[in-house]
Design a binder for these strands. Structure first.
Length: 422
RNA sequence: GUGGGUGUGGCCUAAUUGGUCAAGGCACCUGGUUGUGGCCCAGGCGAUUGCGGGUUCGAGUCCCGUCACUCACCCCA
């Protein structure tokens, strides 16, 4: 065992995995920009209050999953467990509501949750996040959903569909929740302990209970879809029409309720098999009250958070090719002190000429050892410089694939190589 | 927080079920070629078998504890 290990639930992303990450990030950023989203970077930590108020006191995230600490100045801070709260805080603080509306913003970076790690779940994980602030039109929900769908499609994850639901708004939800509570109270002796608690704290959460005992009751529980106000019902219908029109598959899931309190109307997730017991690839929804709740002007919003680790896991599982890493195609080998100095200069010259190059290290190495290294590094050409070549003002350039060699004038070497690599 | 599984060199695996066996493969380094890679051959580096304790003449192998990793529950990315 090594003396030091990664903290539980964290990940070393080694060079061999970077091509996957690079491909995921590149596509995410490209698609976001294509759809008119602008990048916003916020701090990795915020005042704890920002998250506690947004996400809600009774939620799992706030109750037991936050990395919270006091800094030297006694400030109560928390590593972000998600992006939305911080993005909304930045939107208000920087007065982005006076800019063109809606504001379409995306972010990408690490997030932190103190969960128990398991397959597909980490304490530090990476999210791609997109938000549309200042627009109540269901077209905004549709754009958000289309964006993540297209990201998956580009990365080769096919056969996906949205889980979709509407959780109503402050006008219609309270009545539904009362109805749900009343229904459950009539049968309270048949439900699990967790649900007993949920009824008090966040009644909607009884809907995604998986306990055997609760299933029969759930079957006949009232469904929010039948209790939406006219505005919410219309919004939901418009969104579904848009999804149909653009052929983004979805299934209605009346039991989909997300673990954060701020959602209104639309909630959705995308599920996939193959990431251990986890299924959610992304999750999102509308939060029309959040900006107001955090002290800004009443402003509707909708957004999504995409888990990047889970995408990478699936890409590997499905055999999706990552992007090819770019490594130098030229290796400089030398024999002797004068050639070594000349190689140093060649290295400099080549890189200034935008030719990627490895330089052999070590002063007493045999050519065999240097060529072995060149081979392992998959260099296309090895430039061999010894006393013999130096005297004639030339270098021996070995084509590693063909196995043949050419004499090239040192003065022409950069040009010669530039014509053949890149 | 709760439960299950696992823990041998950088990686993968072995050790006749307590008796010199800590072995093999991959990787790495050197040499076979006084200046030539990939294949092959030879050699080499590298492990107090997670840690602590116990049983025993003797433990990698049994027991207890502990730590770590891992999977799962809750919930999510």
């Amino acid at each position: 065992m090594p003396t030091y290990q990664r903290p539980p639930g964290t990940l070393d992303i080694l060079p061999e995995d970077q091509p996957y990450w690079s491909r995921v990030r590149t596509h995410a950023i490209h698609l976001a920009e294509l759809a008119g989203f602008e990048r916003l970077d916020t701090p990795m930590f915020e005042a704890t209050e920002v998250f506690a108020r947004s996400i809600g006191q009774g939620t799992d995230v706030v109750e037991k999953e936050m990395y919270t600490f006091l800094d030297q100045g006694g400030r109560d801070l928390t590593l972000r467990p998600e992006f939305t709260a911080g993005v909304v805080r930045a939107y208000i603080e920087n007065g982005l509501y006076v800019e063109v509306s809606p504001q379409k913003l995306f972010s990408i970076g690490p997030t932190f949750r103190y969960d128990r790690p398991q397959a597909g779940r980490y304490r530090q994980f990476t999210q791609f996040n997109a938000e549309i602030l200042g627009e109540q039109d269901p077209a905004a929900d549709l754009e958000i959903m289309t964006l993540v769908w297209d990201l998956y499609a580009r990365l080769g994850l096919a056969d996906l569909e949205f889980q979709l639901n509407s959780t109503g708004c402050p006008r219609c939800r309270p009545a539904y929740v009362e109805g749900l509570r009343a229904y459950y109270e009539d049968h309270s002796d048949h439900i699990c302990d967790d649900c007993q608690r949920r009824l008090e704290q966040s009644p909607l959460r009884v809907l995604d209970c998986k306990a055997e005992a609760c299933q029969p009751l759930l079957e006949r529980a009232p469904r929010i879809q039948n209790h939406l106000c006219e505005e919410c019902a219309q919004h939901f219908a418009d969104l579904r029409e848009g999804l149909d029109l653009l052929e983004r598959r979805y299934v209605l899931n009346h039991r989909l309720v997300r673990g954060l309190d701020y959602y209104t109307k639309t909630v959705f997730e995308v599920w996939a098999a193959g990431i251990g017991a986890q299924s959610a690839l992304c999750g999102g929804g509308r939060y029309d009250g959040l900006v107001g709740l955090l002290g800004g002007p009443e402003t509707p919003g909708v957004g999504v958070a995409v888990g990047l680790e889970r995408i990478v896991i699936l890409m590997k599982e499905l055999g999706v090719e990552p992007s090819a890493p770019r490594t130098p195609e030229v290796f400089l080998a030398y024999l002797g002190e004068a050639p070594r100095r000349r190689s140093l200069m060649l290295m400099d010259e080549l890189r200034r000429g935008d030719v990627g190059v490895y330089l052999a290290m070590g002063r007493e190495r045999g050519l065999r050892s240097q060529l072995r290294e060149a081979d392992k590094r998959a260099a296309r050409y090895t430039v061999i410089l010894g006393e013999v070549e130096l005297e004639r003002g030339k270098a021996t350039v070995r084509d590693m694939k063909a196995g043949d060699q050419a004499d090239v004038d040192l003065s022409l070497l950069v040009t010669w190589l530039r014509e053949r690599v890149g």
